[in-house]
C-alpha cells in the first residue's frame, strides 16, 4: 500500500495551491478534517495541472471575458485523473448545475420585485435579463471558484465563525463574507477576494497548545505576511479599471482592501481567542 500512502502525502502538500507559499502551514494545521477525513480537497494536484491546462486562455485572462456563455464541451481533462477524482469532479459539476439554476431563479425573483416587470418575460424567463448577462456561467471558472471556497470552508475557523456570529449579526466590511462565485470578476479580483476572505477567517482560528504560548507572535507574523501579500498584489488594481466587466467590483474591492481587515482582526483576536 505504499503507493497509497505516497499519494496521500502528496495530497497534503498540494492542498493549498491558492494560498501560495506562506500560508501553507497555517492552513494545513487548522484543517477541519484530517488527511483521512477531508472532503473534496484531496486531488489538488490534478486541479492545478488542470488549471494550467490548454483550455485556459493563453493570455491568462478570464475565459468569461471572451466567451460569456461557453458552449464548449465539458472539460474532459480528467483523463489522467484517477477514478475517485473523476467521480468527485463529476459530482461537483452536477452540484454546480443545480446551484446555477437555483441562483438564476433567485436573481430572476429579485429582478421582478426590484425593477419594473419586463413586458412579457413573465416568471420562468430565460437568463437573458441584465442580471443573467452579468452572471458567470463558465463551468470551469465556477468549479475552480467553488473549490477555493470549499477550502476556506473546510476549516475549523469557518465552523467557529458561523457558530459564533449568526447571519444577521454579520456586518459587511467587518465580518468575512464568502465571495459570490456567480458574479463576473477578473481572475485577479476573484483571487484577491478569496485571499481577503481567508485572512479574515483566520481571526476565528482555534487556539492550539503552541498558540497559547505565543499567541501574539503568531498574530504578528500572520499580519505581516498578509500585508505583504496584499501589497504585492495591489498594483494590479489599476488593471481593473480597464477591465470591461469588473468596474462594479472595483469599489468593493477597494473598500475591502482599504478597510484593512488586518487591523480589525488584530483587535478582535484577543476576544475570540
Amino acid at each position: 500500500m505504499s503507493v497509497w500512502t505516497r499519494d496521500r502525502r502528496r495530497d497534503v502538500h498540494s492542498d493549498h495551491h491558492d494560498d501560495r507559499s506562506s500560508d501553507q502551514n497555517r492552513w494545513s494545521h487548522r484543517r477541519k478534517r484530517g488527511v483521512d477525513g477531508s472532503l473534496r480537497t484531496n486531488k489538488e494536484a490534478e486541479a492545478s495541472d488542470w488549471e494550467k491546462g490548454s483550455y485556459r486562455h493563453s493570455d491568462n485572462r478570464h475565459a468569461s471575458f471572451t466567451t460569456p456563455e461557453s458552449a464548449g464541451p465539458v472539460s474532459r481533462c480528467s483523463h489522467q485523473a484517477d477514478w475517485g477524482s473523476q467521480v468527485e469532479d463529476d459530482e461537483m459539476r452536477r452540484d454546480m448545475h443545480i446551484d446555477i439554476q437555483r441562483y438564476r431563479r433567485r436573481i430572476l425573483g429579485t429582478d421582478v420585485t426590484q425593477r419594473e416587470r419586463k413586458t412579457s418575460s413573465g416568471s420562468s424567463g430565460s437568463c437573458d435579463s441584465r442580471e443573467g448577462d452579468n452572471m458567470e456561467t463558465d463551468e470551469a471558472v465556477l468549479l475552480r471558484r467553488q473549490k477555493q471556497i470549499n477550502y476556506g470552508k473546510n476549516t475549523l475557523a469557518y465552523d467557529r465563525y458561523i457558530k459564533e456570529v449568526p447571519k444577521h449579526m454579520r456586518q459587511p466590511g467587518i465580518h468575512p463574507k464568502t465571495p459570490n462565485k456567480f458574479r463576473k470578476y477578473s481572475r485577479r479580483s476573484w483571487d484577491q477576494q478569496i485571499k481577503l476572505w481567508k485572512v479574515k477567517l483566520h481571526a476565528w482560528d482555534p487556539p492550539t497548545e503552541e498558540d497559547q504560548d505565543k499567541v501574539l507572535d503568531n498574530i504578528e507574523v500572520l499580519d505581516l505576511d498578509d500585508v505583504m501579500d496584499i501589497e504585492l498584489d495591489f498594483p494590479t488594481l489599476s488593471e481593473f479599471q480597464n477591465a470591461p466587466v469588473s468596474t462594479g467590483s472595483l469599489s468593493r474591492e477597494g473598500e475591502e482592501c482599504l478597510g484593512t481587515p488586518v487591523k480589525i482582526q488584530k483587535t478582535e483576536e484577543p476576544d475570540t481567542a
Binding site: 503507493v3 497509497w4 478534517r33 483521512d36 477525513g37 477531508s38 472532503l39 473534496r40 484531496n42 484517477d82 477514478w83 475517485g84 477524482s85 467521480v87 468527485e88
Partner: peptide, 16 residues
C-alpha cells in the same frame, strides 16, 4: 462529514 474518503479509495483500488 460530507466526506468521500471511502468512495475515493474504493474507486482507486478498483482502478488499480
Amino acid at each position: 462529514s460530507n466526506g468521500n474518503v471511502f468512495r475515493r479509495n474504493l474507486l482507486n483500488r478498483l482502478q488499480q
